[in-house]
Design a protein around this nucleic acid. Structure first.
Lengths: 335, 335
DNA sequence: TTGTATGCGTTATCAA
DNA sequence: TTGATAACGCATACAA
C-alpha cells in the first residue's frame, strides 16, 4: 500500500494525497476528508525510508547511553521515554560501553541514521573537544557540562555537581564528622567526578577538615562492585574514618556491603552518604542518605533544549539543575 | 557523498561500486581494492534510507522492552547489546509501558521501520493470541513462552519458571520452613507468574505444606515498591510465616525492607528467597538467596534463534533455560 | 567483469 | 486547488 494506491482509491493524485498526509494547505476540505478517511480505513502509513530519503534525514532522536548497567541512566531513560511520546520524534536508544568514544559513535550514527538530534547520557569532555566538530546536529550532553566547549550545537544539562559534593560533606560535617573518606570515579577522566570532588574539597577547607587525596580518596567504577572494592581498599588502609561519601548511590550500596563484611555497622560505626537519589536507596538497610538529583528535571530540560534547537534553531544553552540532601538512615550524628 | 561520487572518483560505474560495497561477487580484485580504499579514505557510508527503500526493509533488530524500570530486562539488554555487535544488525531498543500492548506496538514498528526481526522482552499471551497474526517477521519472545501459540514465526526463550518456583519452595522446605507466604505478579495477567506459582504449588503439595492462595499470596508489580507493599499486606494479615518467597529479586528487596520496618529480622525471624539472580542482590544486607536465571544464556539463545530465523528461515523453536539456587544469607535453617 | 537503466515511495516544483 | 513529473541514493536485471 502506497500513496499511489491511495490516490487511485480516492480518485485524487499522489500530490494531493501527499499534501493531505503532511497537513499542508491548498487542499480542498472535501479532498482532505475523503483521503484521510481512506487512509484511516486501510491503516495506511507513509514509508519512512522513502520519506527520509527524500528529506535527506531521519526523524529520530538518538540517545547514546554510556554504560547500559548505569542505574542513573536507566531511570533517566524511563523519564525521557515518557516525555518523548509528546513529541513527534521516535526515541532510539543506543547503548555503548563506558570505554567507547561516544562522539565517534555519534558521528557514525549521524551518517547511518541521519537523526534530528542526539542526546548523550554521559560523556567525556576530551572526546567532545577532539571529535565533536564533525557533528553538525543539535545535541545535548546530559549529566556532564559542555559549557567550556566551543560548540554552537552542543547544549548541556547537568546537576550542580560542585554543590552536590559540597552538600554531602557539609551534611556530614554538620553532624560532627571530621574523619571522612570519599569514593568516586577517576578524577582525570570523569568530569562529573572532578566537579563533585572540587565541591568536597571546598567544604573540607571551609570546615577545617583534614583530607589526604592520596589516602582518603579511592577511585572506582560506578557500580555496586566498584563501591564494594573501593571501600575495601580504604578499610585496609586503616584510616579510621567515621564517614564515607560515595559519589553515586550504587557505589554507596556496594560500600555499605563491604563495611558490614568488615564488621562495621552503618551508621553506628561508619556513616555513609550517597549521591543520585535512586529508588533503590529507599529499600536498602539502612535507607540511604543521599544527595538527590532530579531525574525528572534533567530529562525534561534536556528534551526541551534539544527540541528547541531542532525546531527553532536555538543555539547552545547550558543548564544546571539543583540538588537536595535526602536525609535517611545511613548517616549518624556524632554530636 | 554518494556511490555516484565514489564511482566518478575511482573511474568505475555505480553498479560496480554498489557490488563492491555489498560484498558481491563478479568484481575484479583490482576494482574491489581501489573502490574499498576510496570508500575508506572518504569515510563513505551507504545511505540507509535509499538502501532500505530499495530493499523494502530495514536492517535493524528491534527489541521491545516492556517496562523501562525492569532490572532484569536491563541486564538482559546489556547482554544483548554485547552480543549483537557480532552480527550485522543494529539493535534498536524500544521501551513501552508495562500496560501497553506490545504486539500492537510491534505492528506499528513493522510498518514504520520494517525491521528484520523483533525481540520481545516480556509479553502477555493474550496480546499475542489476539494480534500477532498481523506480524510476519521472525520474532522471539523472551522470558515468556510462546509454545502454546500457533505461530510459525514466533519463537521463545524462557527460564524454567515452573522449576524456579519449585526450587524456591523446596529450598525453604528443606530447611524446615512450613509456614511460607509468596509474593509475585498477577497470576491472571502474567504468564511467568502463573508458571512460577504452579511450581510453588506443586512443591507445597509434595511437601505437605499448607498454603491458602487467598491469604498467603499477594500480587504486586515487579518493583521494589511493589514488593514492599505486598509484604506489608501479608504482615497485616498476621499469618505468622517463617519464610517469604518473592518472585523477583527487586520484590524480595522491597519485602525485606518492609519486614525490617515491622521489626522482623531477616533471616533470623523471616527467611526471604528471591528469583532472578540480579547483581544487586549480592550487595544488600543480608545478601539475597535467590533462584538465579542465566541472563547471559537467555540473551545468547534469543539472538541465535532470531538470527537463524532471519537468515535461514528457520521456523519457531521454544527453549527453556535451566535455573539454579543461589544460597546466600537471607534464608535461615529452622532445623 | 563491467556499465546502463529502471524503479523503490515520497516530496516538491511547476504548470494547469 | 490540483495533477504531472523530477529528483532523492541505492540495488539489480539486463546488456555489453
Amino acid at each position: 500500500m502506497t500513496i499511489k494506491d491511495l490516490a487511485a482509491q480516492t480518485g485524487y493524485s499522489v500530490g494531493t494525497v501527499s499534501r493531505v498526509l503532511n497537513n499542508q494547505p491548498h487542499v480542498s476540505l472535501q479532498a482532505r476528508e475523503s483521503i484521510l478517511r481512506a487512509a484511516e480505513e486501510s491503516g495506511f502509513q507513509l514509508n519512512a525510508n522513502a520519506q527520509q530519503l527524500k528529506q535527506q534525514h531521519g526523524s529520530a532522536i538518538i540517545t547514546i547511553c554510556k554504560g547500559a548497567g548505569n542505574e542513573l541512566f536507566n531511570s533517566l531513560l524511563v523519564a525521557l521515554q515518557s516525555r518523548i511520546d509528546q513529541t513527534e520524534y521516535p526515541l532510539v536508544v543506543d547503548y555503548i560501553d563506558e570505554n567507547e568514544n561516544e562522539v565517534r559513535r555519534a558521528v557514525r550514527l549521524c551518517q547511518e541514521k541521519k537523526p534530528r538530534g542526539i542526546l548523550f547520557l554521559g560523556g567525556n569532555q576530551e572526546n567532545f573537544r577532539r571529535d565533536f566538530h564533525l557533528i553538525h546536529l543539535p545535541c545535548v550532553l546530559v549529566t556532564s557540562s559542555a559549557e567550556q566547549l566551543p560548540f554552537q550545537n552542543l547544549s548541556s544539562v547537568t546537576s550542580d555537581d560542585v554543590l552536590a559534593g559540597r552538600l554531602a560533606v557539609e551534611h556530614l560535617a554538620a553532624l560532627g564528622h571530621t574523619k571522612i573518606v570519599v569514593i568516586g570515579g577517576q578524577r582525570s577522566i570523569s568530569d562529573t567526578t572532578a566537579l563533585r570532588y572540587a565541591g568536597c574539597q571546598a567544604a573540607f577547607r571551609e570546615h577545617g577538615i583534614a583530607f589526604d587525596p592520596e589516602q582518603d580518596y579511592e577511585a572506582c567504577r560506578f557500580s555496586f562492585e566498584g563501591g564494594f572494592r573501593a571501600a575495601q581498599v580504604l578499610l585496609e588502609r586503616n584510616r579510621d574514618f567515621t564517614a564515607l561519601f560515595a559519589m553515586s548511590d550504587v557505589m554507596a550500596i556496594g560500600a555499605i556491603r563491604a563495611l558490614r563484611d568488615a564488621g562495621k555497622r552503618v551508621p553506628e560505626d561508619v556513616s555513609v552518604i550517597g549521591l543520585d537519589g535512586l529508588d533503590i536507596g529507599q529499600y536498602t538497610l539502612p535507607r540511604l542518605s543521599t544527595v538527590a538529583q532530579s531525574v525528572e528535571t534533567l530529562a525534561r530540560e534536556s528534551l526541551t533544549l534539544l527540541c528547541q534547537a531542532i525546531e527553532n534553531g536555538a543555539s547552545a544553552r547550558h543548564k544546571t539543575i539543583p540538588v537536595t540532601v535526602l536525609e535517611k538512615e545511613s548517616v549518624a550524628s556524632l554530636l
